[in-house]
């Protein structure tokens, strides 16, 4: 497997990979921001070319690395191709009046729902791995990690939605 990265002045950069099988794959990052994916099958003369936008390139990249990420407005789901049963969901929630003044330990978030609060964003300040003594204010954004059931339980039991 041979790989090289080549500068193409005036155009961009090219990364080439010669696979063990004898095919050739190349990615060209053009200065204009677009990307091209070249595929040359073993024994053929002319390559096939796909044009990818930066977003499409990132998507292909994350698919190829094996961590498939789907992003929605409030949530991200991560699945690893080697562990297809394992789906980790990271979801954000807005703390309303009903949570103000209460702390994580009192609410028993983990015990009652199974989900874990991994971060809280408050007016530009971020608290990562907040302790059980951490008290919420109205307007906080909570970041939770867990399976779908656990997050649903959190929504029902703790948030009251």
């Amino acid at each position: 497997m041979g790989e090289r990265s080549v500068e193409l002045p005036g155009l961009g950069t090219k990364f080439e990979l010669d696979t063990d099988h004898g095919d050739k794959v190349a990615v060209i990052f053009l200065n204009t921001g677009k990307n091209q994916l070249y595929l040359l099958e073993k024994g053929r003369d002319t390559p096939a070319v796909a044009n990818l936008t930066p977003a499409e390139a990132r998507r292909m990249g994350s698919v190829l690395t094996g961590a498939v990420i789907e992003a929605e407005k409030e949530a991200v789901e991560i699945a690893f191709s080697a562990l297809s049963d394992l789906r980790i969901r990271v979801h954000t929630y807005l703390a309303r009046k009903n949570l103000a003044g209460k702390c994580i330990g009192d609410l028993q978030v983990r015990t009652r729902s199974g989900a874990t609060i991994i971060a809280v964003a408050r007016k530009g300040r971020n608290f990562i791995s907040p302790p059980p003594s951490f008290a919420f204010e109205e307007g906080d954004i909570l970041v939770l990690i867990g399976e779908r059931d656990q997050l649903s339980a959190f929504e029902r039991e703790i948030l009251g939605i």
Partner: peptide, 9 residues
């Protein structure tokens, strides 16, 4: 021309 004719490989 190089880009259009897919010669960059």
């Amino acid at each position: 021309s190089l880009i259009e004719n897919r010669r960059l490989l």
